[in-house]
Design a protein around this nucleic acid. Structure first.
Lengths: 239, 239
DNA sequence: GCTAGTTTCAAACGAGTGTTTGAATTAGTT
DNA sequence: AACTAATTCAAACACTCGTTTGAAACTAGC
């Protein structure tokens, strides 16, 4: 089982030509995992959609789980690298002044937006897949994401802690968790939107507009004053 | 296939006695669906854990999908009823004055907290299950939840619209969506917490403390000023 | 004590699952 | 051209899945 390092899709003039087997499997898997989830998507469904032999999936990726990880890693790894690089750029540009929440949030969001825009079709699929993987109970998925995100999360937690010096570190960690949750949930939710309301049709599925609405919401939440013990009474003491 | 209406667990002194088959299946299914997700949980796993015959699941509930819906409906329906009742109570108490975001949010959260407290073990399981079902791609789950939530969401959207009269209705819908997302994501995330930071052990898995942190975060987000077109430049124009 | 209705049970059904195998084919190098 | 390594392919393997069946056990009601 040797794996060739070359795998960028071959394009002649402006027409996409059949890529190699590995990429075809990854593309089909990305779409189908996004649509049906990990457990409900069979290898036969994927290989049929990719027009390759069933055994090719195991030959190139080893197992279904490894295929799933390959689908995630292909785009998640570069995206998180971008996020960290962008944060570093902002920090060096700001010198020794702390960044604002807005700037830190935009460092998180811009690479996600780039992904949604660059690969016109695949990018959106991937963001939804990522949001769903984020909520998947399968242990191997949780472990994988945990490792993939660990470094980036640590960097951002430090940045937010500097931006919000009056907040206890623990509170910062919680609020970063809320930010990540809202982001992944929002990117994952396609049809959940229909549950809420009738939106302007041209705005649904437009991730850029969506994030422009989400970012100010989250920035305000991050800057919220720390709740006092007396407030807790007011909120939850009543039954 | 006749289904008895009685199904409250039988308790003698302070020791829980084996409940009837239907409840045993529901309890086991709730825990296992929470742990492994819908697709990855087999009926054999459920019926073995419940110590009942395999065929009993189909006999009492018809199919695996109907069993899953029964698990959700058993607690979700009363919880959403409570939410609407509580909102109505607050509104009548306030007369013709608009409610504040904090009060509306607490009307959403208190019934969830009651669930987490009342059934000591089952309640927490259910909240996690609910959060995960909320992100499950299976169409029958999405449709089911959509129907279960429709009425409550409409009531709360109207309440938030009154509390935030300066915001366009569409913006209110988006922010309500963000609130629902952060809530369900946060309730669902057990191990996701570990990803973020090392928290005080006594605070993890304490849903009440968690929501006391989340609620101010969301209230501040709801009240965030509407983003201007010029702000969008500042945020996302750069690459 | 008998009967009618409800619930349990072991066993099987047919379909679908991820993975493996070993031969056939293709691609690359000398 | 010949030989080697990489890839594709059809077929099968060993399970697990949700669901159904029909007989057995149980539970009222008379």
């Amino acid at each position: 089982m040797a794996i060739s390092a070359i795998q960028k899709p071959i394009r002649i003039s402006e027409v996409a030509v059949e890529a190699d087997t590995k990429s075809r499997i990854l593309d089909a898997a990305e779409e189908l995992f996004m649509e049906h989830g990990f457990e409900a998507t069979s290898l036969r469904l994927i290989t049929t959609a990719a027009a390759v032999n069933l055994a090719a999936a195991n030959y190139h990726f080893g197992s279904k789980e490894e295929l799933f990880q390959a689908v995630l890693t292909r785009r998640l790894d570069p995206m998180n690298q971008d996020r960290m690089q962008l944060l570093t750029n902002y920090e060096t540009a700001a010198g020794n002044k702390a960044l604002t929440c807005e700037v830190i949030i935009s460092a998180m969001f811009i690479p996600a937006l780039k992904l949604a825009r660059d690969h016109e079709q695949g990018g959106k699929n991937f963001l939804r897949l990522l949001g769903r993987a984020y909520a998947d109970p399968a242990p191997f998925i949780r472990e994988f994401l945990s490792n993939q995100y660990a470094e980036m999360i640590a960097r951002y937690r430090a940045a937010f802690a500097r931006a919000l010096p009056h907040l206890p570190r623990e509170e910062v960690s919680w609020r970063l968790h809320f930010v990540m949750g809202a982001l992944s949930y929002t990117l994952a939710g396609t049809d959940a939107l229909k549950m809420i309301a009738q939106f302007h049709p041209e705005e649904v599925n437009n991730d850029e507009l969506l994030l422009k609405r989400l970012a100010p919401f989250l920035a305000a939440g991050l800057r919220a004053p720390l709740a006092q013990a007396s407030d807790a009474h007011q909120w939850f003491q009543e039954t």
